[in-house]
Simulated scan of single mutants.
Amino acid sequence: MYAQITQFTKMLHTLSRLLDKAQKHAEANGFEPEVLLNARLSPDMLPLTSQVQMACDTAKLATSVLTGKQAPVFANTEETIPELKVLIEKTIEYVTSMKESDFSGWEDRIVAPSGWAGAFLGKDYFYQHGVPNFYFHMVTAYAILRHKGVRIGKMDYIGQLPFLR
């Protein structure tokens, strides 16, 4: 489990780097970064700011639910790229504060996330909701930036790979 949670950390670092590229793109093209932060893929979808917040919320909630530890509450009032980057860092700090032993028994632990109508086995919650929801918001944030002309590609999304050589 701990290895899967560290994937959240890797991807949150990726999200921060994507926001850096968004900032540079806005500056180079003479518009305010808020244009990108308010962008959506479709009128009925949430904007980039919300996608970043929800990726952070999902990583934080999955970590909390599977360890049984209380997650910090973040207000999700960010309106700028620097504020979103602080949110990402706070989320990474929380996720990386866990030790592998904190996840002991996570697969068979009965979990009932706050606000949900029922309970799950930890593995079902994580694999059926936590992972897909996290990546939904990650890829949507990436797609919004790409759609708006930010020069990013697949390797910007995947990030560094742990090559042996």
Results as ranks from 00 to 15, higher is better:
Lys69Phe: 08
Pro33Arg: 09
Gly105Leu: 01
Leu18Lys: 08
Thr140Leu: 08
Thr91Asn: 05
Tyr135Met: 12
Leu66His: 08
Gln7Tyr: 04
Tyr125Lys: 05
Gly30Lys: 15
Ala117Asn: 06
Glu32Thr: 10
Ala3Val: 01
Leu66Ile: 14
Gln51Asn: 14
Ser16Thr: 13
Glu89Asn: 15
Lys10Ala: 12
Ser97Tyr: 04
Asp57Trp: 05
Asp108Gln: 13
Ala143Val: 00
Ser16Leu: 06
Glu79Arg: 14
Gln7Thr: 03
Ala3Tyr: 00
Leu41Glu: 12
Glu34Lys: 14
Leu12Gly: 06
Ile5Glu: 06
Lys123Asp: 10
Gln53Asp: 12
Gly118Asn: 02
Pro47Glu: 09
Leu37Gly: 08
Ala55Trp: 02
Ala3Trp: 00
Glu83Gly: 01
Ala26Leu: 08
Ser101Lys: 09
Ser50Thr: 03
Thr49Asp: 01
Val131Asn: 09
Lys123Arg: 15
Tyr142Ile: 05
Thr80Cys: 05
Ser104Arg: 12
Gly122Glu: 13
Glu79His: 15
Leu84Ser: 14
Ser64Asp: 08
Ile5Trp: 10
Ala26Phe: 11
Lys85Trp: 07
Asp20Asn: 07
Gln70Ala: 13
Thr96Glu: 15
Glu79Val: 11
Thr63Lys: 03
Phe74Met: 01
Thr9Tyr: 03
Gln4Phe: 11
Leu41Val: 10
Val73Pro: 03
Val86Gln: 04
Phe8Ile: 04
